[in-house]
């Protein structure tokens, strides 16, 4: 039955994807991509990948929509007329699709117990997590301990992306301060709309609390630094939408955000170096404390905090970069 549900959702996903490409109005495309993200997350959820679904929920459905709308407020509604190389693009897409379909023919069928993913390192992860780290969520153990290098790489990818966006659209000297922000002294944000403001202000602390719960409960349930960072960033974006971007910048100024971007990545690397200094390998948390299990757990909490800080900083910096350019 789950397979039927999955197939149905995948069909809806395909229809949505085609509609996104087909939509000439960019606002419609943004709305449809929000639907795409929701459907994708449901698929992940059906496949039991709760951590991935949580990431998709926080980043795809929440923050991307806000960032897309921020980008859209800088440009026009209409898509430009398509480029003249349509036949060439069609040929490239067709060839790539054929190659991907041919690639899937060699794959083991879904749920095959003999598939390499089931027999290669997964059993070792499942057993070792129980003995060496003693946390229930194996995904967090794989992500932050066994595959610590990969996650460090991901954090630096997020870091680099944030720096790149800030270079492209962050500070720009051409515009005077009075040019940005809504005209005629109209306050930005939804400050004059009583009901959204009241409800939104009530929600901000709860969203933030939930973000902290996801951050520190990542070893026991779905969650971790990436998801928590996105949720906490979403709560501050909500505050910025309600009270105007300037008030949000007073709470978390740009300098603090830049510090968070580099500080989180630095914290992650520092935990790795600390392991080296205490006689282990880079990112080997077992040596951090006398008890190797406790050391692993402390290491995971520290690097998850680093991940969360960097992700929050990057997402908020990107939001403010868009907000400062347009009137969003």
């Amino acid at each position: 039955m789950t397979v039927v549900f999955s197939m149905f959702l995948l069909t809806l996903l395909l229809i949505t994807a085609i509609a996104v490409v087909h939509a000439g109005n960019l606002f419609v495309a943004v709305m449809l991509s929000g639907i795409f993200s929701l459907l994708l997350a449901l698929n992940f959820f059906l496949l039991d990948a709760a951590d991935v679904a949580l990431t998709e929920a926080a980043v795809g459905a929440g923050i991307s929509t806000v960032l897309f709308l921020g980008a859209l407020s800088l440009t026009t509604d209409r898509e430009k007329s398509p480029s003249p190389h349509r036949l060439l693009s069609l040929a490239i897409v067709a060839v790539t699709t054929l190659a991907v379909i041919m690639g899937t023919l060699d794959k083991p069928s879904f749920g095959d117990p003999e598939a390499p993913v089931q027999v290669h390192v997964a059993p070792w992860y499942l057993e070792t997590t129980r003995e060496a780290i003693q946390i229930p969520n194996v995904v967090t153990a794989v992500l932050s301990s066994f595959r610590g290098y990969d996650t460090l790489g991901e954090v630096f990818v997020v870091f680099t992306a944030g720096i790149g966006v800030l270079f492209l659209i962050g500070r720009h000297s051409g515009t005077k301060p009075q040019d940005i922000g809504p005209p005629h002294g109209e306050p930005s944000g939804l400050r004059h709309y009583l009901i959204p403001r009241l409800i939104g202000r009530m929600l901000v602390p709860f969203i933030m609390l939930f973000g902290l719960y996801v951050q520190f409960h990542g070893e026991y349930g779905p969650g971790g630094g990436f998801q928590a960072g996105a949720i906490i960033a979403a709560s501050i974006i909500l505050y910025a939408l309600l009270e105007g971007e300037k008030r949000a910048l007073q709470v978390l100024p740009r300098s603090v955000l830049v510090g968070m971007i580099s500080g989180g990545a630095l914290l992650y690397s520092a935990v790795g170096v600390a392991g080296m200094l205490m006689g282990g390998n880079f990112l080997d948390y077992s040596v951090l404390l006398d008890d190797p299990v406790k050391g692993q757990q402390i290491g995971i909490i520290l690097i998850e905090a680093g991940v969360g800080i960097t992700v929050t900083g990057v997402l908020l910096s990107i939001f403010h970069a868009f907000a400062a350019r347009g009137r969003f």
Binding site: F27, L54, G62, G189, L190, F210, I237, L238, L241
Partner: peptide, 22 residues
Amino acid sequence: FLDLALVYALINFIGVLAVLEF
């Protein structure tokens, strides 16, 4: 896994407000 449903319920609201602001 109800945690995820909670996240969605909270995050959806932000999306709607972003559309309003837009």
